[in-house]
């Protein structure tokens, strides 16, 4: 097998991992599979695109690539604002839709269906606003650097990988070392008891939306930078994200990252060994295998 598989798989896997961490966190706290999570990814990417174009129009210098990368300062600046906007969008959807259903004690499946409706709306509105034509953050070409053993990666790819690693460690520390992280784990295990102990569950839910949205936005920007932007970019990631979240074990951040890498590497290997046209089947096969063999996931705890 070509060692480049490792790089390709790690790249895709880091992306899946970031997205799956958002899925797994919101899932463990809100207790339903959010089909609209992928649209936060798409929204974040397009928000960053619109903002960085606007910044570029204000000052062309901001579009000047920061060597050795392919993008200028406009993108990271726009990315920060896009993270905030994506968080606001998540809070708004929660206020309009999920919060009300939660308040009414709707069943899991009603929540899932609502997320499905929200996803459809968001995706189509994005398509309406930006058309289905692929878009790009930058047209700059990058030369892949040799890494030895016949492996190559562009500076953008290496940066994304490093960013993903930093974010995963950051989220893990947040969950294990801080008061809000403790509250999140408590709510995820037993919401009623968390309230009794003094945890403001509604605040925890808001924080989880913000965190999930921020990670989704960054994953979206990474995907847009490394591949391209399309209104369906998030939708196409939905199955790998769910597969990774379930494989990792719902609620487990290290599990989601590890599973994201597994899905990414398995896809890259499939492309090499079987053929690129079967790449999207990998996530489904992994999903079926997990549900069949270990429904609680790799690092998850067994549920009754």
């Amino acid at each position: 097998m070509n060692p480049q598989v490792l790089i390709d798989g790690l790249m895709a896997g880091a992306l899946y991992g970031l997205g799956a961490i958002g899925v797994t966190l919101t899932y463990s706290i809100l207790r339903f599979a959010n089909f609209a999570h992928s649209e936060l990814l798409t929204f974040g990417a397009y928000a960053a695109l619109a903002l960085s174009s606007a910044l570029g129009a204000l000052s062309a210098g901001l579009l000047e690539p920061i060597a050795p990368f392919s993008f200028g300062w406009a993108l990271p600046l726009a990315g920060l604002v896009a993270v905030a906007l994506t968080g606001l969008l998540a809070l708004a959807v929660d206020a309009i839709l999920f919060g009300r259903l939660r308040h009414r004690r709707s069943s899991i499946i009603v929540m899932v269906m609502a997320s499905f409706g929200a996803a459809l709306t968001l995706r189509s509105l994005i398509e309406f606003a930006f058309t289905s034509k692929p878009a790009y953050f930058t047209r700059e070409l990058q030369i892949a650097l040799p890494l030895g053993q016949g492996m190559r990666a562009t500076p953008d790819q290496l940066l994304s990988l490093a960013l993903a690693a930093i974010l995963v460690i950051g989220v893990h520390l947040l969950l294990t070392r801080t008061a809000i992280g403790r509250s999140m784990r408590a709510v995820s295990e037993n919401q009623a008891l968390a309230g009794v102990v003094g945890v403001d569950v509604r605040r925890v839910i808001r924080v989880v939306w913000l965190l999930g949205a921020a990670l989704a936005c960054i994953a979206g920007i990474m995907s847009g930078l490394l591949v391209q932007l399309r209104p369906y970019m998030g939708f196409d990631l939905l199955l790998p994200l769910f597969a990774a979240a379930i494989l990792g074990g719902i609620g487990s951040v290290p599990g989601a990252m590890l599973a994201g890498l597994i899905v990414g590497l398995a896809e890259a290997a499939t492309v090499q060994l079987v053929g690129a046209e079967w790449r999207t089947a990998v996530a489904f096969v992994i999903l079926v295998l997990v549900l069949l063999l270990r429904p609680q996931g790799l690092l998850g705890r067994a549920q009754a």
Binding site: L97, S106, V110, A114, G117, R123, S124, F128
Partner: peptide
């Protein structure tokens, strides 16, 4: 195609509205 995407958005809104 762009206008058609509004059609789909309407389905999504309808699903959410009925649930609410």
């Amino acid at each position: 195609a762009r206008a058609a995407s509004l059609q789909i958005a309407l389905i999504g809104v309808a699903i959410c509205a009925v649930l609410l």
